[in-house]
Design a protein around this nucleic acid. Structure first.
Lengths: 255, 255
DNA sequence: GTCTCCTTATTACTCCGACATATTACAGCG
DNA sequence: CGCTGTAATATGTCGGAGTAATAAGGAGAC
């Protein structure tokens, strides 16, 4: 492993200019950047479960940061269940079933590099379980602000297409608005996971078909059912939406 | 707020004896204990969203720990989305929708003090959405080791009753085994959440009814269906199990 | 009088070096 | 050959010093 710095070039000896290369210049905190680096390394399989990291002093020196910053980064990873450190034994990567895969940061790290098809399929399955039920609850409990949020997200989807990042963000917003409309904190905590699933299925759809089917009608049906407080219809419409998404991605993801 | 120490008495000046009062003497790491303390304080509402904690130096001194330990504890809370700290602004508690409520530690902190009925109801709802679907998938994908795990958990449930902690642990193990049998990492990540829901519904059942209904037959039906690879029956049996649990807890939880 | 820009003060962030503690591994002993 | 005690090692904790970033307040221009 070569020594790759985390922060923008620090230039220990020479000039200062360095135009921090905003890629990672101290806009984010240093330990956050290190956590990101280590997190992606672990999620990408660079460090396998059971592997033990180099000692604190060695690793901190290799990253050219202080031991404090390194330790704080490791605490973050520990908090997310990725690693565990004990005196004398060192810091080792935990088995995958201990990882908090639904943690927003962990999800981001998982998709930082090349995405794992199998994991995306798992997320999609979670989505197909949760979202229809969420749509039903949303139809029963939504208030005006929920409707407003969904309406705006739908409008944004129409304006931009799913080909743009803004459009995909609107797509995520729409699905998040549904989760929020359930007024269930535990379900809302799944926004990151569902969002990731939505995002990547869309990504694959774009990749697979040159001229994708227009997704607006499907979403509009869900919106109408929720606005009409028709739980059964909302659940069914969401089920259809997901089935169609599955259809479109089947070639890439072969469920 | 009076100054409550986290670690066992440190006795800066005087004698050393101190018999660490194993309540929290350095068996757990210090920053872990501090994180636990702050986490429960936030989850219990002692610090409301938007509140800003005292500065690092002040708070660390109040807890009688070093700033390093305090900072590492805060990093843990930050990693779980409970707080956010910025220079000059201090460390403030984030709004509830930013919390990773499905994180195992956060769940533990949420139930450390008096449990929030509303949140338990939310978790129960999540459970009623996920578990039937999980049972169906488990029936389709389970292998021998999955069956074995479920069988052992069921046997343990029979031996101890749900009145004992061992029995409740076996109950959790049974439900966890079903999630594992789905062979879906994203669903497995819900073990902590589902487990908490299972645990607390059982707790409430015990509290409400002097002579609770025997829960074994319900679980056995789920087990049989999964062992028989009958997805539809497994889903239905799980639905019934949850409905009965809901019935038993309705008086306490009034869903 | 209102707005923008800049200065300033506060706070978190980073670094350093030392000591304490826990745990593993080895060696000596029964 | 198994057990026990000892020593080595890596993490954990500590205290202080200096840096960097941000929010708030003040000066200036329109």
């Amino acid at each position: 492993m070569e020594k790759t710095k985390v922060g923008g070039e620090a230039e220990e000896g020479g000039g200062q200019a360095q135009a921090p290369a905003k890629t990672r210049g101290p806009g984010r905190r240093l330990h956050g950047a290190v956590a990101h680096k280590l997190g992606t390394a672990i999620l990408s399989g660079e460090y396998a479960p059971g592997d033990t990291l180099s000692g604190e002093v060695a690793f901190a020196e290799e990253l050219e940061i202080s031991r404090s910053a390194y330790r704080e980064a490791v605490q973050v990873l520990t908090a997310k269940g990725l690693v565990e450190s004990r005196p004398k034994a060192g810091t080792r990567v935990l088995p995958r079933n201990r990882w908090n895969l639904l943690d927003p940061d962990v999800l981001a790290w998982a998709f930082a590099g090349e995405p794992d098809i199998e994991f995306i399929r798992n997320l999609f399955e979670l989505r197909s379980i949760v979202e229809p039920a969420a749509a039903r609850l949303a139809a029963e409990r939504r208030d005006k602000s929920d409707i407003k949020m969904m309406k705006e997200a739908l409008a944004a989807m129409r304006r931009h297409t799913l080909a743009t990042e803004a459009g995909r963000a609107a797509d995520r917003d729409f699905h998040n608005a549904i989760l929020r409309a359930t007024h269930n904190d535990a379900l809302m905590a799944l926004t990151a996971s569902i969002g990731a699933a939505v995002n990547w299925t869309t990504q694959f759809k774009q990749r697979a078909r040159a001229l994708p089917r227009n997704p607006i009608p499907d979403h509009a049906r869900v919106y109408d059912a929720i606005a009409a407080s028709d739980g059964e219809a909302a659940s069914e419409a969401m089920r259809v939406l997901i089935d169609l998404a599955l259809e479109d991605t089947r070639s890439s993801i072969q469920s």
